[in-house]
Each structure stands twice: as C-alpha cells, then as structure tokens.
Nucleic acid binder design. Structure first.
Length: 791
DNA sequence: GAGCATCGGGG
DNA sequence: GTGTACGATGCTC
C-alpha cells in the first residue's frame, strides 16, 4: 500500500470492462504526475409513487433505495435509482418521465463523484492506494482511502502558447511560441539569420506541428494557457494537424485535444487544465475595459502591451524572411503576456475552484450564474436537499418575460457641490439575502404566517411575502458562508497585506454578489422570482430610510443609486454624519452595514436624464488626496479623439480643484484657439474605430468604413477586426470623404471646425451647462460664422 | 423603443 | 459527455 500526498487536478471517467472507472489526474506534492483511479456508481432520484417507479425498472438499474430527501422545503420519499453506467441515467429518466419527478439526472458523473466524496480539485489529499495496471502508460494507483490535508496547489506549472497564421485561403501556421517559467521558445519554418536563441527552425508546417506536440509533452505542464485559444489557436492547430494526418496526443491519457461543437466552442485536454484567459477575464472577472483584446486586458492587469507590428508586412516578411524576426518577438511576447495574466489570475481561479468544487477547466468557462449554481449543487447534500431541475418549455418562456422593479435612483440636481460625504451599504444585496433569510424554501412558510414581517413592497409593486424566521434557508445559509469566509480573510489581511488572500476574498465577493442575479436568472435551477423582487424591495426600503434619516438630521442628499448615498454636510460637521451612520447601523438587522466611504472636498453632478441608457452614474469627484474620480462621462470610454478626452479631464480638474468655471472656460477657449492655429500634433486628433465586418457589408459610409475602402483601393489588405486610425481633414464633402488614415496626414490637415464642434465642445458642454454656460459661450470667437448657422 | 440578430476573442 | 453561453450592441420596423 502506497501513501501519497496528492493534488487532484482533472477528473474524468472511462468505462472499463462494463464498469465506470473514475480517473483523477494530478500531481503529488513532490511533483510527480499520477492518475488515481476509483470506482463509483451513477444514480439519480425519482419522486412519485414508489411501486409505479419500481415497476419501470429494467436491467440497466443495479438497485434502488428509498431515502428521505428535502424537496423545496418538504421531506419526501425519494427513490435513488442506481444504474450500471452513466449513460443509462438519461435513458432511465426518459422512461420514468410520465411516472415520477426525476431529479439530478443531468449532474455529470465525474462531478457527482467529487461532490459525494467531498473532493476538491487543487487541494491536497492524503491517499492510500495500491499500484494499478494502467493502459495509458502513466503511473497510476487504485484508491483505497482519501482524506483532506492542508495545502493548496498554488505553484502550478503553467505553459502559455500562441500561434501566428497568414490571412489567406488554406493559410498555414507559420510560427508558434511557448512561454513558461524559465522557458521561452518560438518555432517557425521559414529560415532567416538571427541571434535570438529562443527561435528554432524547422522545415515545414507539418514539422512545426510535430514540434509543438513534442515540446508540450516534454514540458509536462499542469496548465496550458492561451488567449482565445478555445476559439482560435487550438481549433486551428487541430485542423492543420488533420490536414497532415498528424496526431497531437498531448493529453495525459494519450488522447488529442477535444474541440467542443457549437458557436462557443472550447478545447478540453485530459489531465492538463486548458485555461483560456480570455474566457475567464470576460465571464468571471468582468474587467472594466473598453474591449477584451489581449492588449486591453494586459494593459489593465499588467501595465504591459502587445508589440506593435504591421500585419500588412507579414506576407512579405514570410516570403523573404526579411523582418520576420520582429513577428517572432511579437509572437513570443503574446505568449509571455498570456503566461503572466494566467499566473496573476491563478489565485482567483484556484479559489473559485475551491469554493465551487468543480475542476479548473470548467470553472474558467462558466458564467457567474453557473458558478453560483454549482456552488449550491456541491452543498445541496449537506442540507439533504434535492437539486431542482432546469426550466423547460412553458416555464422557461414565462420566466423570460417576467419583469420586476429594480433599484432606487435619486436623481442629482446638476451642480458643483462642496464637502461631500459618501456612504454605502456594504454588499447590499448579499447582506439582505443573508439577513432576511431569503431562499425559495423559506418563502411564505406556514410557521411564520402570523408573525414574520412582510417584505416592504410599495403600492406599485404589490406582494404579500415573508421569509421564515425559524429555520435557515439553503440559499441564505450558503451566501452567509461566503460572507463569513470573506470577513475572516479580510480580518487576517488587516495584519498582513497578501495578494493571495486578496484574490481569495475577491473571488468570494464575486460569487456572493452573483446570488441576487442568480435568483432572478431565467435559466437558474433555484430561480425564484419573488425572492429576486423581494431583494430589490428591501434594497429600496433601506436606502429610502437612510435618505430620510440624513435629511431629518439636516444633511442635504445630492445623489443616491441602489446602495450609495452622497450628502453634503452643509452647516453640520463630518462627525455628525458619521455619528448618524453609526446610529443607523445599530438599527440594521443581521450583517447589514452602512459604511463610510470617504470625504470629497468637491464634486460635479450632471443630470442623468438624456443620457444613453437611463440612470447611469455620472459625476466627477476630487478626494482628499487631490485624486480625481470620474464616473460615467461617455467620452472617457468611447472612441473619441485624445484632444476631446484631455480637454474634458482638464476642465473637470480645474472645476474641482479651483472651483473656477471662468478659468475652465478660458482654458477651453485657449485650446480651441490652438486647434484652429494647428498648434497641436495630429496624434491628438486620431480617432480609432474597429471594423466589425468586411467593408463591402457596410451599408453606411461611416468614416472608418470610407477610410478602409480607400485603403483597399490603394492595395492594402483590410480585414474585419482591424482598428482604423483616422483623422477628419478639412475640405468639402461628407465626413466619410474627409476621413484619412493618420499616417497620410500632416499636422496641418485636420479639420479644426469639425474637432471643435463635434469633439471638444460636446465633451464638455454638459459640464458647462451645469454652470449656466451654453455652447455659444464656449466657441464664440472665430466660430461665429459656423455656429450662426445652427442658432 | 421594442424586438430581433449578431458579435465577441484570434491573424 | 448523466451538457449546449450570455450579455451588450446595432439594426430594423
């Protein structure tokens, strides 16, 4: 009998001799890759007439047991139907669908095993096992006993990769790069002289693919990572390998990567976790960036960028070898960025794996609602609760159309305010769910009919709903666990700053914050319309009460949205506001808390009405460290010219720091004059717009489309996804006809009037309106002729 | 402005 | 693999 300390990383099963066998791939703490095999039985639940159910049982069923289970708050006799093979489960379920309510028939077998055995991937286990004869050629053991141990697998071996291809029909892969700890490599099949040691040459695309297979196998990573590798790199490699009839058997069971079908395909390897950084960043992290390109994400998380290369030069460089080195460097750098992103995000990913209990491959591809769901599924057995089915048919359709009232927004009166204090409810919705015990199973219980407080719905959103005060609900307990776990981590973090702990608390917060959305999500198993609208009703009630209390005490409320409140102290002192918050906190139930978020010497609030999508935050504040916080001004985010963005920021800075609207106005006038005199560089006027489809498919001639069309005529290769960088030049005709690529412009070419009227003025006009100025005041001198046409 | 369709990432 | 995404944005009526 061997004793092992083992981190399970990827769990699958295979049918061997008519029996399902669990395979857990992973690494010992000493670093050896192993497979642990175990035996388990597939099953599902049927609730209904037991005799009728048992009559339908056929030879695929090994046996049945009757067990008392909780079905949405009620204890029922459930028949556990244990089948010979996982594939028998859906068949048996279909057979029983007229007879009984079948549950948990779509819980995947490998995940079922992890849940029932309480095994969490990336976590250390003490294992007793016997050597096992394994057809896959890998060292394997048969599990005899397993118990959890202390360590978490944090130092996983990551290998990042990236490919480059040409853009033609039947385009070959021309190079790939790999990047790991102390490892970097670019392989290409065009020879050229180079001193770069990491560049390796092969003789053909087929050899390149073989070399890819070889290098990945040699490296033995725990994680293979790419950027959009689910949708591009892996499918591309597999397709080219197929062309040459090559096998990319890099999985630990000697199988090839399996590419999922459908629109949103993903690539799975056995035993190696394939992390597509793009998917995790987009689905889970929800980074606040303009787009999710590798460049934007690397910029936001690493303060690093992709290399700048001109892809138009690639076909030529590939033909001659001249300048190809630059593309190799570019290729390697993409892998490096991906490696660093993956390393940086690993603590978040691992923590999510540990909370939710699902392998890393799946975690990285789940939406937040699915993470919540699997966290609940994993914990359902501890509450003896049966997992509800996903909605189907009419139920699904009904859910899709249901609407309910959302959060409260207190519209600010536009203006400049001084001595602003900001308070907000810490995790408002999660704390409401936990404090008011909001769960489908606790709703309108019979035991509290006469005693429990009703959810504070307003007249326009009627409802008689209460939640049990005697028994903790499943959902509310589970969110409570997350909140407590996070508070414990935050407590430790007060003593020591630790990025690892920070990643953990962040993952916990993300998951807790997703519960409200989950309860209202149409496809959720634990969907609960009345729970979701009860949460927003409580939210509105709490913020209303806080607003009222501040007003009663003599503070002026400027703005409030969902969970936050901005007040000016006026004649009162800052301490009075803090005292009031303290008093409010004493009256709040459970873990609810109104937090002091900060003091802002001044702030500008702009009217919310007339903005693009309803009640979006739109304000600028300056904090006590003279740092400016800008929220919601559209130019900050969209594809405006640098000059417009700069002017907006500078205007806000002058107003907030000096409170001098006259000075801000003078500044804008000065800039307008500079623009007119062509004293600014052309790069200040460059507008960037991405082509989202082939040029010929555009009906309109938007400026960037017009530019792209002209570039094509000039012989450039233009493909969807390219960012067109252009400047509006002066002259006659439409904007489109006057848009030109930046490179073809001089500092004299830009159309001063266009930039003043359509970029600079609009970027600040809303701000100046707050101070009683109009468009005329901004651009009066010299623009008189033009503007007179408009007024 | 509601409802439907497409797109995202990648070279 | 005991499976099939989702949320934002643009376009059309």
């Amino acid at each position: 009998m061997a004793k092992l300390r083992f981190y399970p990383m990827d769990i699958t099963y295979k049918v061997i001799n008519g029996e399902p066998v669990i395979h857990m791939y992973g690494r010992t703490v000493e670093g050896e890759q192993l497979c642990i095999v175990d035996h388990y039985e597939p099953y599902f639940w049927a609730v209904g007439d037991i005799k009728a159910i048992e009559k339908q049982i056929d030879e695929t069923v090994a046996r049945t047991e009757v067990v008392k289970k909780d079905l949405n708050g009620e204890i029922v006799d459930a028949v556990k139907i244990i089948t010979m093979l996982p594939e028998h489960v859906p068949k048996m379920k279909d057979k029983l669908k007229e007879t009984a309510l079948c549950l948990e028939a779509d819980i995947l077998f490998a995940r079922r095993y992890l849940i029932d055995k309480e095994i969490i991937p990336c976590q250390e286990y003490e294992i007793e096992a016997e050597p096992y004869e394994f057809s896959e050629g890998m060292k394997a053991f048969e599990l005899k006993s397993i118990k959890p141990a202390e360590r978490i697998y944090e130092n996983q071996k990551i290998l990042a990769f990236d490919i480059e291809t040409l853009e033609q029909e039947d385009a070959p892969i021309i190079m790939f790069s790999l990047y790991g700890k102390d490892f970097q490599k670019v392989v290409t099949w065009k020879h050229f002289p180079t001193k770069e040691k990491y560049i390796e040459f092969v003789n053909s695309e087929a050899d390149l693919i073989k070399r890819f297979r070889e290098l990945v196998k040699e490296h033995q990573p725990d994680i293979i990572t790419g950027y959009f590798s689910d949708g591009f790199d892996f499918p591309y490699i597999m397709e080219r390998a197929k062309k040459y009839k090559l096998s990319i058997d890099i999985s630990l069971d000697k199988s090839q990567p399996v590419i999922g079908r459908g629109e949103n395909k993903s690539t799975k390897l056995t035993g190696i976790n394939h992390v597509d950084v793009y998917k995790f960043v987009r689905n889970i992290l929800r980074l606040d960036v303009d787009d999710y390109t590798l460049n934007s994400v690397a910029e936001a998380l690493l303060k690093d960028r992709k290399h700048d290369v001109d892809f138009e030069k690639l076909p030529d460089a590939w033909k001659t070898g001249d300048g190809l080195e630059k593309f190799c460097q570019y290729n390697l750098h993409d892998s490096k960025l991906t490696y660093e992103l993956c390393s940086k995000l690993l603590p978040n990913i691992v923590e999510m794996v540990r909370i939710v209990g699902v392998p890393m491959y799946d975690i990285c591809r789940m939406a937040l609602s699915q993470l919540v769901e699997w966290y609940l599924i994993r914990n359902a057995p501890k509450f003896n609760t049966l997992v509800p089915n996903r909605p189907a048919g009419d139920e699904f359709k009904t859910r899709l159309t249901r609407k309910y009232k959302g959060a409260f927004v207190f519209e600010p009166k536009p203006g400049l305010y001084n001595n602003i204090m900001l308070f907000d409810f810490r995790s408002l919705y999660p704390s409401i769910i936990a404090s008011h015990n909001i769960s489908p199973s606790t709703m309108n219980c019979s035991c509290c009919r006469d005693t429990a407080e009703r959810v504070p719905f307003e007249k326009d959103e009627p409802g008689k709903i209460w939640f049990c005060t005697n028994k903790k609900g499943f959902i509310s307990s589970m969110i409570g666990d997350l909140i407590e776990r996070r508070m414990r981590i935050k407590e430790i973090m007060k003593k020591e700053k630790n990025p690892l702990l920070d990643a953990r608390q962040y993952s916990l917060k993300l998951l807790a914050n997703s519960f409200y959305g989950y309860l209202g999500f149409y496809a959720a198993r634990w969907y609960c319309y009345d729970c979701a609208r009860s949460i927003t009703a409580y939210g509105r009630d709490y913020i209303h009460k806080v607003i009222k209390q501040f007003e009663t005490e003599g503070f002026k409320v400027i703005y409030s949205d969902t969970d936050s409140i901005f007040v000016t102290t006026g004649k009162k002192k800052a301490k009075d506001a803090q005292d009031l918050a303290h008093k409010i906190n004493k009256s709040l139930p459970g873990i609810m808390e109104l937090e002091y978020e900060g003091n802002f010497p001044s702030g500008i609030f702009v009217s919310l009405k007339g903005t693009e999508s309803g009640a979006k935050k739109k304000y600028a504040l300056i904090d006590e460290n003279d740092e400016i916080v800008i929220k919601g001004f559209e130019t900050v985010r969209s594809n405006w010219s640098p000059v417009a963005k700069d002017v907006q920021k500078k205007v806000l800075t002058i107003l907030l720091k000096e409170g001098d609207a006259e000075k801000a106005l003078k500044y804008v006038k000065k800039i307008i004059e500079n623009i007119r005199k062509h004293e600014l560089g052309k790069e200040e006027f460059e507008i960037r717009t991405q082509l989202t489809k082939p040029v010929e498919e555009y009906e309109s001639t938007a400026p960037h489309v017009a530019v792209a069309k002209r570039l094509i005529k000039e012989g450039h290769e233009i493909v969807p996804g390219m960012v067109i960088k252009y400047i509006i030049t002066s002259g006659k005709g439409t904007i489109g006809s006057r848009a030109r690529v930046t490179e073809q412009c001089t500092n004299e070419d830009y159309d001063a009037d266009y930039y003043i009227e359509n970029q600079v003025v609009p970027s600040v006009i809303k701000i100046f309106e707050v101070f009683g100025y109009s468009e005329n005041d901004l651009a009066e001198k010299g623009a008189q002729d033009k503007l007179s046409k408009f007024f």
